[in-house]
């Protein structure tokens, strides 16, 4: 299509543009035409007025209660407001450069006051020096005195305004500091909730896994371990899959150990203890520890979890935290 054809086509699309009835490409073409054609802009103006007629003359309807306040609050949150007439939603927000502007307001008054005082002093000095006591000079002096009084009272008013603004700023800064503290507390709460959520998800995964192995006939619980004196809330389960000699220890209720220490699982047969696997627990005190074994796991008569000072200890410490009392 030639550029002239595109231009004609876009001109024909002006009515649809006024009704918002164009797709993106057509709209872009019309916007390009409007940027260069005064005739198109004039035509669009008439068409928009036709479209406006439909909307503007629809009868007003009752609005939901409180909507006015909500609309104004949205605008109030969007940026600084110069007045709060009829709103009361927000105090004036003063940026650092706003102080310069406020001080600037005082400069003309200060300059005018200084000028008037200087003129008054100069007039008095001239009168004294030349001994001129004319009525004109008296009148001029009175006028200047009046002007000084007026400017002085104006300065007092502006100082009062300044004090009010300073008070607003102090209040705003205090509110801001309070919000910052609250924000820090919220962040800590969120962090706690995140940790709790993670622990719950781990627990859920463990529960799902246990449900799976419980429902699967090839898996079976080999041992249920209970906590000893040093870890009364601890408990654990060993589940095994005898045909592939896979197993897993699922443990909860333990505490996290210092970095150099580990938990270790042992299988027992009489007095003999066979080391199986070392592990750590997560923040929630839980762990799921897969391991393999040789032979028939049911040939062992129990299991024990100990605390060791290094990985894969060959001799168990006396620090037992979990164990099976009997088969």
């Amino acid at each position: 299509m030639k550029s002239g054809d595109i231009r004609d086509s876009s001109f024909e699309d002006l009515a649809a543009f006024a009704l918002n009835a164009l797709d993106e490409d057509e709209r872009a073409a019309v916007e390009a035409l409007l940027a260069e054609s005064a005739e198109a802009r004039s035509e669009l103006r008439e068409l928009l007025e036709g479209a406006e007629s439909l909307g503007a003359l629809l009868p007003a309807v009752e609005m939901p209660p409180g909507m006015r306040g909500r609309v104004m609050a949205v605008a109030g949150r969007d940026g600084p407001i110069n007045t709060v007439d009829g709103l009361g939603e927000r105090r004036p927000s003063l940026q650092p450069d706003a102080w310069e502007r406020i001080r600037g307001l005082f400069r003309p008054a200060r300059l005018a006051l200084a000028s008037a005082v200087a003129a008054l002093i100069a007039a008095a000095a001239l009168a004294g020096f030349f001994g001129i006591q004319t009525s004109n000079l008296q009148q001029e002096t009175e006028r200047l005195v009046g002007e000084v009084d007026s400017l002085g009272s104006e300065l007092i008013t502006e100082k009062a305004l300044m004090a009010e603004i300073e008070q607003s700023l102090a209040s705003f800064q205090s509110e801001f500091a309070s919000n910052e503290i609250e924000s820090g507390q919220r962040e800590a709460e969120i962090s706690n909730l995140r940790q709790t959520n993670e622990a719950l998800q781990n627990a859920l995964r463990d529960q799902m896994w246990l449900t799976y192995v419980s429902a699967n006939r090839s898996w079976q619980a080999a041992d249920w371990l209970t906590g000893g004196v040093s870890a009364p809330k601890a408990h654990a389960t060993i589940v095994v899959k005898q045909d592939t000699q896979e197993a897993a220890l699922m443990v909860a209720g333990l505490t996290q150990l210092q970095p150099e220490r580990v938990y270790q699982l042992w299988l027992t047969s009489g007095e003999e203890m066979t080391p199986v696997v070392s592990f750590q627990v997560n923040e929630a005190g839980a762990a799921r520890v897969p391991f393999t074994f040789s032979g028939n796991i049911f040939s062992y008569d129990g299991a024990v979890v100990t605390v060791e000072t290094g990985q894969n200890s060959l001799a168990p410490s006396s620090y037992h935290v979990l164990g099976t009392e009997s088969r």
């Binding site: 909307g55 503007a56 629809l58 009868p59 007003a60 309807v61 009752e62 609005m63 909507m67 006015r68 609309v71 104004m72 605008a75 109030g76 940026g79 600084p80 407001i81 110069n82 007045t83 709060v84 007439d85 009829g86 709103l87 939603e89």
Partner: peptide
């Protein structure tokens, strides 16, 4: 344009119901 919220409020009072109606 000078960030006078009262002016926006006045425009809302003037046209808000019709905008809502549309």
């Amino acid at each position: 344009t000078e960030r006078d919220a009262a002016a926006l409020s006045a425009l809302y009072d003037r046209y808000g119901r019709r905008v809502f109606a549309l």
